[in-house]
Nucleic acid binder design. Structure first.
Length: 936
RNA sequence: GCGGCGGUGGCGAAAUUGGUAGACGCACUACUUUGAGGUGGUAGCGCCUGAAAAGGUGUGGGAGUUCGAAUCUCCUCUGCCGCACCA
């Protein structure tokens, strides 16, 4: 029998499917393990070798856990709603439902070849009404919740109504601060509409008028994480700020818990740091500055500016105040003399796009209001300016400026010639600000002589004592915009009557997405759904919400649905989610660091608070697979001709660099014949060769069709088989690492599988395996491998595990070991990596040796072998020995030395005995392969 | 600017976390199998000196801790990623 991977892979994939081998049952006496991939967006551009990387990793882990006796949930589905699917549908002129379906089919076909062990019976799609019914239902639960800051959890809105009925919102009952205050009596006088309006301010999913990121080209608003430097993440279109009524998720209520939760979860440092950064927690104080506005007639003092600062210790260094241009007090503080200047500046700020602002960060601009603020500690009056470097959205939209300690404040002071107070002595050079906390304060009255960082708590306490401010924790994170003016998303289960939002009754879910023929935007920034009057207008003058939910709605909870995918009366039964519980390992790219991963963590916390699930963090461990980059090849065409010069000759001419299809290049050598046939324009190409060859240029770039550097997994599978492909992808390097694709090395892995095959069948395809009992040396090889594979697989170090397989197979080849007692356990070890070969060989052997192994139908039902440590002791010529980490000597051993022999020789060695000096030896530790540490 | 992670042969990378650096694979060289190509097999392969034996040197650079450092500490150079007017 020869290693015919094409035949055996097809055969076993077929068989596994027929026997529903990977379908997993809820509940089992076995321990559970939930291994999940981030579900893909069915985008329509075919797969390249980078896509399956994470799926291979998770598949190996899932298969490994099955062999270890776990009941493993390893599902797959599609994130089929969202902007890109709609854009793709627009470009191709087909309905998104159709393109999505097609894309899913081709995606699935490509995946099938690789031999994954997904339980396809649990497949879900976010665009399926049976699925989004529950996305809508969950939205309503969030809509019907508020955040109790005292109990630190979400609660039902009815409970808040009870609180208002009894106490109004003035007493401290945990609800968030509100702009309007009312007593219980006042609350009861409100009519239903007014009460709903008030409640809207407390809901975890709420509609409000706010500044949104509006993308004209996409015709929709975007969430903060979908905007990168003033451009849309998707498509790179300009994004502007715009006031609109939008739905939001009150993720800010969860800021602290999202931060704390990171400590309980196994994510990479980089990932945690990105999330912390996004949440952007800072500790400081809010402080009141009374303002003085001198007009010709009188002096006004009713106003006060509240600023936020993390550096209260610098209070005596405040030389001026700055408000955001949009700040509500600007008008009141502007004196008649300054009015025109302030107006002009505000106009200027309005005229600038977000993009211009970000591009010109360094430029100092601003205007003086004419008013002054009184430093509450020193009584010093400082001028009040407005400037766009102060952001309305962060803190209180106003700052106390300390030019000696903050570079931006310093630049501003310099520009407007404001005198700078030095509060840090020689630490300030007058040339630039020094933001240190380690300086001794000067010019700071009661703080003089105190180290800045020690002064912070002193000032904080004083602020609270004097009643001029409070300690305050601030977050950069904003509430998440939750509505999109697009078609291809979940419709909101919300209807309006006279502008008041009402939830759609549960019996009316799902609110199905109606079919449309055109996707053009509706009136007034509304989405395409607004163009269907028959759908929008309901009986009783109710009107539907025409926005749809964003892409992350469906993906925020999908991991829960896999536990119970066919449930049509619950999003998932509590029993099922309790059983499968947290995702044990979640595999996916880093690109969802601040989007999906934060939203799904938030939804999980809400559901936990509402008692619907029993865990607070969705993902116990996160593995971020690296990107596989493409290795592009280039040819150099002499400008204006059809002549191509080889790489090292190109500098002699003026050339254009052109991408060339990487599959036509062997190493760096171009197949000129194939090149001529590639495109009609190259049919007449001439070549300037070096040593008879055309040498290409090379660069590492993102893998993409347009760069002609994509490698299709199917081509490799056709040539080498799925097992080789799987192992090679893992052998390239650590899963987490990004690396350029290089097809060259795949031969080595393929060779390994052929060697493995030859342990069972010789060149004449005769079975050579025997049921002879193995000797100690052979057992040692096996047990060493078992130990290594178990350790490496458990910690996702698949590249080193594969190296260990190679060593093992080489060693067994060297000692001509063909014994089933060694080979069958080895096959089980390999099964997660190369399931098809392992199954084929295992079945062939067990079929022939009936009595012993027939109990298992498939290699998947077998047990991961256990190792015995007595076989792991290394044989060596010489053992270096160190005593108590102090000195080192070398003891010669013969090759057949056992553990006992080694111990005996160590203890009896003269030099060692001299060092131990009669003290008893506590233990002998074997470090590295051939070294011993003796502890006394 | 701030933050995170790295830097080891010609290349991808190992090093059981302080214990013989470079496992394993690719590429390369020689021999061998074969009519030839491919395949398979054997051996060599960090760098320098040397015919060899052997010796010296070696984990971006510099210092330090240690019997012992790729691994720990400090300084420095450099690459990648993330954030960025956040008070």
């Amino acid at each position: 029998m020869e290693y015919n991977f094409r035949k055996i892979e097809k055969l076993w994939q077929q068989k596994w499917k027929e026997e529903k081998l990977y379908e997993v049952k809820n509940f089992s006496s076995k321990p559970k393990c939930y291994v999940l991939d981030m579900f893909p967006y069915p985008s329509g551009v075919g797969l390249h070798v980078g896509h399956p990387l994470g799926y291979i990793a998770s598949d190996i882990y899932a298969r490994y856990k099955r062999l270890k006796g776990f009941n493993v949930l390893h599902p797959m589905g599609y994130d089929s709603f969202g902007l890109p699917a709609e854009q793709y549908a627009l470009e191709t002129g087909q309905h998104p439902a159709v393109t999505t379906e097609n894309n899913i089919t081709s995606f699935r076909e490509q995946l099938e070849n690789i031999g994954f062990s997904f339980d396809w019976s649990r497949e879900i799609r976010t665009s399926d009404p049976a699925y989004y019914k529950w996305t809508q239902w969950l939205f309503l639960q969030i809509f019907n919740s508020w955040y109790d800051e005292k109990e630190n959890k979400a609660r039902k809105i009815e409970e808040l109504v009870k609180i208002f009925d009894a106490h109004g919102n003035t007493s401290d009952t945990g609800q968030q601060k509100s702009k309007i205050n009312f007593t219980a009596a006042e609350w009861k006088t409100y009519d239903a509409a007014k009460q709903l309006d008030v409640l809207m301010q407390y809901r975890l999913a709420y509609a409000a008028l706010g500044e949104v990121n509006w993308c004209e080209a996409l015709g929709t608003v975007l969430a903060n994480d979908e905007v990168i430097n003033g451009f849309s993440e998707r498509g790179g279109h300009p994004v502007v700020k715009r006031k609109m009524r939008q739905w939001y998720l009150r993720i800010t209520a969860y800021a602290e818990r999202l931060l704390k939760g990171l400590e309980t979860v196994d994510f990479s440092d980089a990932m945690k740091e990105m999330q912390r950064n996004w949440i952007g927690r800072s500790e400081g104080a809010e402080m009141k500055f009374v303002t003085l506005t001198r007009t010709i007639e009188n002096l006004q003092t009713e106003n006060s500016i509240v600023v936020y600062t993390t550096r209260p210790d610098t209070i005596f260094g405040v030389d001026f105040m700055v408000l955001a241009p949009e700040h509500e007090l600007v008008e009141a503080l502007t004196t008649t003399a300054q009015e025109s200047k302030i107006r002009a500046y505000q106009e200027y700020v309005k005229s600038r796009s977000e993009r211009e602002r970000l591009a010109e960060v360094k430029q100092v601009t601003g205007a003086f209001t004419g008013s002054y603020a009184v430093n509450p500690f020193s009584g010093v009056e400082v001028p009040i300016y407005i400037s766009e470097y102060v952001l309305a959205a962060y803190g209180t939209g106003a700052i106390m400026a300390v030019p000696s300690g903050d570079q931006r404040d310093f630049d501003f002071a310099k520009h407007f010639r404001i005198p700078v107070t030095n509060i840090i002595g020689d630490q300030f050079d007058g040339e630039e600000a020094n933001p240190t906390k380690d300086a001794i304060l000067t010019n700071s009255r009661f703080l003089d002589g105190i180290m800045m960082k020690d002064a912070i708590p002193i000032v904080l306490q004083k602020i609270e004592e004097l009643g001029i401010g409070v300690r305050k924790i601030n977050y950069k994170m904003r509430d998440a915009g939750f509505s999109r003016q697009r078609y291809w998303g979940e419709p909101f289960p919300i209807v309006y009557k006279q502008g008041i939002a009402y939830p759609v009754g549960e019996g009316h879910l799902p609110v199905e997405l109606p079919h449309v023929d055109k996707y053009s935007a509706g009136p007034e920034g509304e989405g395409p759904l607004a163009n269907i009057p028959g759908w929008v207008h309901l009986a009783g003058s109710f009107k539907r919400e025409t926005n749809t939910m964003p892409g992350y709605a469906g993906s925020s909870w999908y991991f829960l649905r896999y536990a119970d995918p066919d449930n049509d009366h619950e999003f998932a039964s509590k029993k099922a989610t309790d059983y499968w519980n947290q995702v044990d390992v979640y595999v996916g790219g880093t690109e969802h660091a601040v989007g999906h991963l934060l939203y799904s963590r938030m939804w999980t916390k809400i559901l936990y608070d509402l008692g619907m699930i029993s865990f607070e963090e969705p993902f116990k461990k996160l593995v971020n697979q690296g990107m596989i980059q493409g290795s592009s090849r280039f040819v150099y065409r002499i400008s204006g001709t059809n002549r191509f010069v080889s790489f090292n000759l190109k500098d002699k001419f003026e050339t254009d660099k052109l991408h060339v299809e990487v599959n036509m290049v062997d190493g760096m050598i171009l197949d000129t014949g194939a090149f001529k046939k590639w495109k009609p324009e190259f049919a007449t190409a001439e070549f300037e060769l070096e040593n008879g060859k055309y040498i290409c240029g090379a660069e590492v770039e993102k893998m993409s069709k347009s760069k002609f550097n994509t490698i299709n997994p199917n081509d490799l599978i056709e040539k080498y088989g799925a097992d080789t492909f799987r192992m090679y992808e893992m052998f390239l390097g650590p899963v987490e690492q990004s690396k350029p694709w290089d097809t060259k090395g795949i031969e080595g892995v393929h060779r390994f599988l052929k060697k493995l095959w030859r342990l069972f069948y010789d060149e004449q395809q005769r079975a050579v395996w025997t049921t002879e009992k193995p000797n100690d040396q052979e057992l040692k090889i096996l047990h060493k491998t078992i130990k290594k594979i178990e350790e490496d697989t458990a910690r996702f170090s698949f590249n080193t595990a594969i190296s260990a397989f190679m060593v093992c197979v080489n060693e067994l080849g060297d000692c001509k070991c063909h014994k089933t007692d060694i080979l069958l356990p080895l096959l089980i070890l390999i099964a997660p990596y190369a399931p098809h070969v392992a199954e084929e060989l295992y079945q062939a052997v067990t079929a022939a040796t009936k009595e012993k192994f027939l109990s298992s139908n498939s290699i998947l039902d077998s047990q991961f072998p256990s190792f015995e440590s007595k076989y792991l002791i290394e044989y060596a010529k010489a053992y270096p020995v160190s005593v108590n980490g102090k000195m080192r000597t070398t003891i010669s051993m013969d090759l057949a030395a056992t553990q006992e022999d080694v111990e005996k020789m160590v203890l009896e060695n003269e030099v060692i005995q001299k060092w131990t000096d009669g003290k008893p030896v506590k233990k002998i530790i074997y470090v590295r392969n051939k070294m011993v540490n003796v502890v006394i």
